[in-house]
Simulated scan of single mutants.
Amino acid sequence: MKRHLLAAATAAVAALALSACGTTEPAADAKDTKTSEAVTLTDASGAEVKLDGPATKVVGTEWNVVESLLTLGVEPTGVADVKGYQLWNTSVPLEGEPKDIGTRGEPSMDTVAALAPDLIVATTDLPEAAVKQLRDIAPVLQVRSADGAGQVDQMLENVDLIAKATGTEDKAEQVREQFDAKLAEGRKALEEAGLAGEGIAFADGYVTSNQVSVRPYTATSLIGEVNTGLGLKNTWEVKGDESYGLGATDVEGLTKLPEDTHFAYIGNEGDENATPFAEGGILKDNAVWKSLPFVESGDVHRLDDGIWMFGGPGSMEAYVDAVVEALTKK
């Protein structure tokens, strides 16, 4: 289920995603709490990770961990699918010129080894065989990408763990405070606009052989949790998967949404198959789509490109700004 998780959006979509009080820029100084003392951590896989000191030469095998590194002010030495990151995550842009280590699902072991990193940060989504090979190159710190029982908590825990490995704990605390402030700011803005409790359905979609697949982000997705934190009501009735809270439906399935739903999505100009809901797109002549109440009323909101729906605090702060602006501009 992973074109958006491991490439951009799954062909079956079904398969398997904010600023100083909004800043999405990386930390100014990654060395705020670094010392020369050895570091020992327990990662999400339960493995003990030992470092001679805070890591400075770090490789990231997934975009969410790369975003966390950048947010903490650590410029990664190696990044999986650099072009993909630059296309899908412009909220927290890459700094420097990191080496592309291959795909997120299959990093090049030779490329990673040639970089001689202090630390490799991966997720528990990476195949165990790949993790084993990476551990032969350098210490590997695994974080859990998603947890349907608490997405925001998991996101922030990941930032904290990476901060401990890189000696940037002070910055991690600032990141938490900024995220909480941004969420509170967005909630207040919606309340003042009389939008508290409004229904929202966020989705992404993908076109394959002229067929549109829709992927709902349910209340247990990361974006779903952020919407709840903003005081909005998630109107999807489909069930999401246990980890990511993502569901599966099609255009016909959209007819089950309440009439007063605000429909929001993120597309990408760099991938024409990933924006089926856009004006003038493949659905422009689709009778079902055109008859949907939220389409007829103009409550379809395309949010800014480049907000990674499975990212970290920077991406979610950008999402808060985008969705609040979209809902309050009427």
Rank of each mutant, 00 (worst) to 15 (best):
G311I: 00
P293S: 11
L303I: 02
L230P: 00
F277V: 06
K290T: 11
M309D: 05
D241N: 15
K284L: 10
V226P: 02
K233C: 09
D299S: 07
G253Q: 08
M309Y: 07
A248Q: 14
S297D: 15
Y265H: 05
D241T: 07
A264M: 01
L230H: 06
A264P: 00
L230I: 07
H262A: 03
G298L: 10
H262F: 02
A264I: 00
E237P: 00
G306H: 01
T235V: 14
K290I: 10
K233Q: 15
V288F: 14
V295S: 05
P313Y: 13
P293N: 10
H301W: 12
K256H: 04
S315M: 04
N273D: 15
D250F: 10
Y244V: 03
G231R: 06
V238M: 12
E259A: 15
S243G: 11
G270W: 12
V295Y: 08
L257A: 02
T275L: 15
E225F: 09
S315R: 01
E252C: 08
K239N: 09
D305H: 11
T261K: 00
E272P: 06
L257W: 02
P313S: 14
E272I: 11
D305V: 07
K290Q: 15
E272Q: 14
H301D: 07
G267M: 10
A248I: 09
P313C: 11
V226S: 04
K284T: 14
A274W: 12
H262R: 01
I307K: 00
F310Y: 13
G281K: 06
H262D: 05
M316P: 03
E225H: 06
S243D: 15
L292A: 05
T275V: 14
D271F: 15
I282A: 13
S291T: 05
M309N: 05
